[in-house]
Amino acid sequence: MRQFDPQPAPHIPAPSSVRRMMLQVLVALIPGIAAHVWFFGPAIAIQLILACGFALGFEALCLKARGRPLLPYLNDLSAPLTAVLYVLCLPPLMPWYTTAIGLLFAIVVAKHLYGGLGHNLFNPAMVGYAVILVAFPLHATSWLPPASLAENPIGLMSALEAIFTGGLPAPLSFDAITEATPLDHWQNGISSGQMMSEIRQSPVFGDYGGVGWEWIANGYLLGGLYLMARRIISWRVPVALLGSVVILTLPGSLIDPDTNPLVMEHLFTGGIMLAAFFIATDPVSGSTTPRGMLIFGAGVAILTLIIRRWGAYPEGIAFAVLMMNMAVPLIDRHTRTRVFGT
């Protein structure tokens, strides 16, 4: 007689893991990040390394404090992913301490105080971003112009100096090197009575979005399609989000094109693409039911457009996501599927 160790069914293990999923998402972000580096210089790369370091550090501290094993959780790549998404939302020359504070709120407050991986109510990267946007409004809105338009492109050394000392090499100053984003231009221009055609005269506008920005958005789109093809993310959130943007902005841009940006401009400026494929698709803080995902995506789109049009901030993605996060328990409860045979 031979003995075996009996185990409950099923007997073939799942071929996937949290780590593999997160890794796929990180891989899918590469085209967008590469476009970022190409158009805006290497500063973002420094910021990414710095942020990942902080994120893993805070993650380790929290795990230690909560008496959890370090390895499986540090290995799951969820903290680096949060860090990367956080960095992609902010200007690349943010001082190092803002990055530390942002990730402190993202990892310690938004994630671990709510119970760690899988338990956070809010999207950690968006919590970190929102805190920094409110606490350091000047830094958080000081975007660089695309390198092709800049009089003094920021190189690696100047970027390092700016991030770690808060200052810039002698002839440069923040006022001189930063530039309003396309979204700033819309908001300022429209509120001061300019026509869209006049606003588009600014050199920051490219073919259908901002110069450089439109290519970053294309990168995110490419990565997002990859994730959808690999079934890492459901098609529902991106389709609902982007579809809602189209439906909501189409009438305005057709009826009154002088005061309303075009649909393409909405899609390819700001954080819409990033949010559609990488932020609103965060499984933990998003809805899990099929209809819930559609509602969640559409809700993010509606709130973002409201904030863009009437809000105090030029971009409303983060607040839109956080507000929809709050609604998730309610959405999930009311969008349950019909069970087979009932």
């Binding site: 949290v18 991986l117 899988g118 338990h119 933990v284 995902m293």
Partner: peptide, 11 residues
């Protein structure tokens, strides 16, 4: 392929 982790609500 990995040890058990918390549910990440991936659906």
């Amino acid at each position: 392929v990995a040890e058990e982790m918390p549910c990440i609500r991936c659906g």
